[in-house]
Nucleic acid binder design. Structure first.
Lengths: 339, 339
DNA sequence: TTGAAAGCGCTACCAG
DNA sequence: CTGGTAGCGCTTTCAA
């Protein structure tokens, strides 16, 4: 039995078993060249003392921590939670621990977290960036910290990156509305400084342009979503002489807020959302979405990271995953006949 | 500029600035008793060399890692994601990093994760347990690792615990159905070996008994949820001469699966679910749930942990949070008139 | 205000 | 097969 706050060390075990610490180390790490009899004696001492190897010391000596860091916007968001789980699974398959931090879309917080992780000497870092300048990571990369960007590309540095085809996905979603006869289509997106939000807006614009459709400024809102901004956005695009007959929502939170707003106001217009929602198929009508392959995004990011940790030497690579249209009913009807 | 894979140490900085390593340490840690002029010289060297303190070494020397571990069932589940976020926020306010691991309801995996975290010498551990015997943690507690259990109590050891009133919540939900006139009410719960599932079943039984209602065995299913088990559960409770007119679902996944099944089969019965769902208010009818205060659960667990880390000496404590009924329409109607 | 030396617990390296 | 020694990069302690 150990006393409170005191842990037995390898030396303690060694003394207890009458061997050298190095022999204990061999047993603890399953190294060869230990007589079974000796190993058994050491094992007994380990159990009797309740010894658990101190991986902090091990890390210091070996220079590898068998841990990676993941920085995302908010682990409480289902999208990032799913991504995080995929990363964790890959990490676990490499016997590696995962440290997670939420940046809340704050560049300073991202930087603080990234440097804190690097100070812990994580072997690598997966970042869903909020910052607009990642040169602060150059030193860490040079010092050997592997780096992968997911969901959004790095700014001002080169590194492996895995993205969703946000622009193409948005185009597909908006084209789907156009294909159903809509010509006045609104767009509600997040703050345009966010890469994915900007890309999706571009996709919206391109799909409209490709169909020869003009976009009125009152149809477009691009800002951090809240109940109030959603309410105003919808009011603006539905007011005036050219109200929209359909709306494209730029992410999962926006879709949910817009649905709630439309329901409250008892307004029924066609809607497509970017990102899937857990109960999207159970709403009436079902919500048509452009779904990202969230798990894949995380899995591939983690695979790329471990490939680098395995010594892969090539130049930075970029993987782009498609986004998939899932028609469920909320968009598959024509606009009301014009008076 | 550093070369690949080599990081400057305090000694390097010290040499560069012509001071002792201890002086660099003082500057890096904002300790007093350094002449501003000296400090400036050190700062310059730090920037020139791109030095970042190695917290692994710091940890080894100081014996505190400023990190905590969180073991839950699945970080991809919105319930645990929300809890995790609350824990992370408390940890961040203590300048502490969070390591997360998913046990997938596997006792061995829980144990492996917990011991891996302890080997890293996390300062404390928050566990949402899957195991049925936590004596393996006694040594770690004795060695000084703080321990808090959340959502489910520990088995065979004593430790701070924060729980939801699962039994009371289920009673409230079932009583609500009874209050709306239902007398034949089904129950679908998770594997009864899971603490929360067992408690919620007890609550169901007690509410039925309190109203003087018998429970037919065909009305009850208690197993790991899947599309198939849900389908069979519903078919059983709706078949025969005494079909249920309402059902109580034991957790968020079960509620979603049951809703999908009922929708597919075009069956409309009253329903109350345990755990809230993101779009519950937007379904038609809205889904009545018994909601847990997930964020509170995580926040209080983390607060209890840091209170222990701060030296709080009292005996293990148990906090029980209420679960709150949120009526939304799926349960607020009477059963069809009996023929 | 500054520095030198010891050592946290482990593993790498070399000797036996 | 086994053991000793050195040292990972930092902080602690004590001396100057």
């Amino acid at each position: 039995m150990t006393t409170h706050g005191t842990r037995p060390t390898m030396r303690d075990v060694a003394r207890h078993a009458n061997v050298a610490t190095k022999t204990v180390s061999r047993v603890v790490n399953d190294e060869p060249n230990v007589r079974p009899q000796t190993a058994a004696r050491v094992q007994r001492a380990i159990i009797e003392l309740g010894y658990l190897r101190n991986d902090s010391a091990r890390v210091l000596r070996r220079g590898q921590t068998a841990s990676i860091g993941l920085i995302l916007e908010n682990i409480g968001d289902p999208f990032y939670a799913a991504l995080s789980r995929a990363v964790e699974d890959v990490a676990a398959s490499h016997d590696t621990l995962l440290i997670t931090g939420s940046s809340d879309e704050d560049p300073d917080r991202e930087r603080t977290l990234a440097l804190a992780f690097c100070a812990r000497r994580v072997d690598g870092l997966i970042i869903i960036p909020a910052a607009h300048d990642h040169t602060y990571l150059q030193q860490e990369m040079a010092a050997g910290c592997a780096l992968v960007f997911a969901d959004r590309p790095p700014r001002l540095i080169g590194a492996d990156t895995v993205l969703t085809d946000n622009r193409g996905g948005a185009m597909t979603g908006v084209a789907h509305l156009i294909g159903n006869g809509h010509r006045r289509i609104g767009f509600i997106g997040d703050d345009p400084r966010i890469y994915t939000a900007a890309e999706r807006y571009q996709g919206y614009c391109e799909a409209m342009a490709a169909a020869g459709l003009r976009v009125a400024s009152s149809w477009v809102t691009r800002t951090a979503p809240s109940r109030q901004t959603m309410s105003e956005a919808l009011r603006r695009m539905l007011a005036g002489s050219t109200p929209v007959t359909a709306v494209f929502c730029g992410n999962n939170r926006i879709t949910v807020l817009a649905l709630r707003e439309l329901r409250t106001a008892r307004i029924s217009i066609a809607l497509v959302g970017f990102d899937d929602l857990e109960l999207a198929d159970l709403l009436e009508p079902g919500i048509t979405v452009v779904a990202q392959h969230t798990g894949e995004l995380g899995r591939i990011a983690a695979d790329m990271l471990f490939r680098r940790l395995g010594g892969y030497p090539g130049p930075p690579e970029r993987v782009v995953l498609p986004a998939t249209l899932v028609p469920r009913g909320s968009a598959e009807f024509p606009p009301p006949a014009d008076p």
